[in-house]
């Protein structure tokens, strides 16, 4: 298993694999199903293309545009827990944020 820091972020995001995502998610009490994976893939693709880890409001714009026009922040919380964006970023293997959002 790739090393992770005390907050559960990968020490090196390059180590990320779908299997590691499953482990991180399990530690956070999140079970990953099809819809989770669609969102993880979307976020990873966005990061790969633009080098940006989008904040919640931008994430919602993306999800409404590319995933489901009816998508809501409640739905995101239902999928990824109360600190949805942070947990999603952690599961998706994005760099650890400098802020504490």
């Amino acid at each position: 298993m790739a090393p992770r820091d005390r907050e559960g972020f990968l020490v090196s995001p390059a180590d990320w694999t779908p299997e590691i995502a499953e482990v991180i998610a399990e530690d956070l009490g999140v079970a990953l199903f099809t819809q989770h994976w669609a969102i993880i893939d979307l976020l990873r693709a966005y990061y790969a293309q633009y080098g940006l880890s989008p904040p919640s409001r931008v994430l919602m714009t993306l999800l409404k545009r590319e995933h489901d026009p009816e998508f809501s922040s409640i739905a995101l919380m239902q999928l990824f827990g109360g600190r949805a964006r942070r947990q999603l970023a952690q599961i998706a293997g994005l760099p650890k944020p400098s802020d504490c959002d």
Binding site: D5, R6, E7, S98, D99, C100
Partner: peptide, 20 residues
Amino acid sequence: CVASCLRRGILNDSEAQRFE
């Protein structure tokens, strides 16, 4: 700015803990 601080090694106790 926290991001400027982290890049340049200015840490308070909680950031030092967060980044081990």
